[in-house]
Design a protein around this nucleic acid. Structure first.
Ligand SMILES: [Mn+2]
Ligand SMILES: [Mn+2]
Ligand SMILES: [Zn+2]
Ligand SMILES: [Zn+2]
Lengths: 149, 149
DNA sequence: CTGATAATGATAATCATTTTCAATAATAAT
DNA sequence: ATTATTATTGAAAATGATTATCATTATCAG
């Protein structure tokens, strides 16, 4: 279902109005596998949507995150980064190069990981009475290129 | 070995001069199990060390992190937090309450976790040629108190 | 088509962190 | 111990990401 209202139905119940910036931002994120910052999204959209405001980018990203359509990450870099989180995209974690900032998705070990995470969630609930809602696993190090330099 | 030079030898080779702010900051962190922000450290030290500057706190924290004596965390809160990382403190991960910000250390599952992490590091090195140097695992959710509210 | 009002975008404000730079203090040299 | 060297400090200003304000605009129910 292409067109300006592709994502609209995903929103019903969450917000009132479907607008151009919302479509554009979600569309951009859905088309890339990159982890974009607000400013990168802004720079990208300025070309096809001159006049869009950085403020709106931030607001919309918050909104999309709350509805669960995108995910927000802080990779120890100055700015937060966002990625699309549709069901097409498998659950995964990240490798972050501390030298050049490159981010690699990986979904290896999904099974062992899920096992550990679920076991952990259960036991942490018992021991600390903590209700686990989300988890984050990341590896920091050097990418292939940066190991050479 | 108490006294103003308790931590001094840990620094040799890393920095030139051992100073009061450095001792004070490291001492504070070594005495608490909390995860303090720069501003919290500043507020704490002002009492015993009037005149200390927030700038120095930031600089010293950077320095201590580089030597590996403390660890820096971003828990999706506005500010970074720091904790002491001596050998007395076991390797552990965190539960973060998204409602009140409470942070709980846990070191359960250490064995399974270590196993998974090491296996992952090895395979990620092969598949992505990525050199893993550090990892981070965290669970987000609600603490006991916040589940009631 | 029209009105109510949610959403936008320019601007200013905030907040954590970093930079600058003159003054100070830790250490090496005397 | 005294002095000289220069790393370190702290006040102030700068930065950079994000958020708040508010008048204007655009969506959409009626
Ligand atoms: Mn990803
Ligand atoms: Mn901890
Ligand atoms: Zn790299
Ligand atoms: Zn809580």
């Amino acid at each position: 279902m292409p067109g300006p209202h592709r994502w609209r139905k995903r929103f019903e119940g969450h917000i009132c109005r479907w607008t151009m910036p919302r479509e554009a931002i979600l569309d951009l994120l859905s088309r890339t596998t990159k982890h974009l910052s607000a400013k990168e999204i802004y720079a990208n959209l300025l070309q096809i949507y001159p006049g869009i405001g950085l403020t709106t980018i931030y607001r919309t990203l918050d909104l999309l995150e709350k509805t669960g359509m995108i995910k927000k990450f802080n990779f120890r870099q100055g700015e937060n980064r966002y990625e699309f989180a549709g069901e097409q995209r498998p659950h995964h974690h990240h490798l972050i190069c501390t030298s050049c900032g490159k981010i690699i998705d990986y979904s290896d070990f999904a099974e062992e990981e899920l096992e550990l995470v679920e076991k952990s969630a259960k036991q942490l609930a018992e021991k600390y009475k903590f209700l686990v809602q989300d988890h984050n696993i990341e590896f920091y190090g050097l990418c292939q290129q940066c190991q050479k330099d």
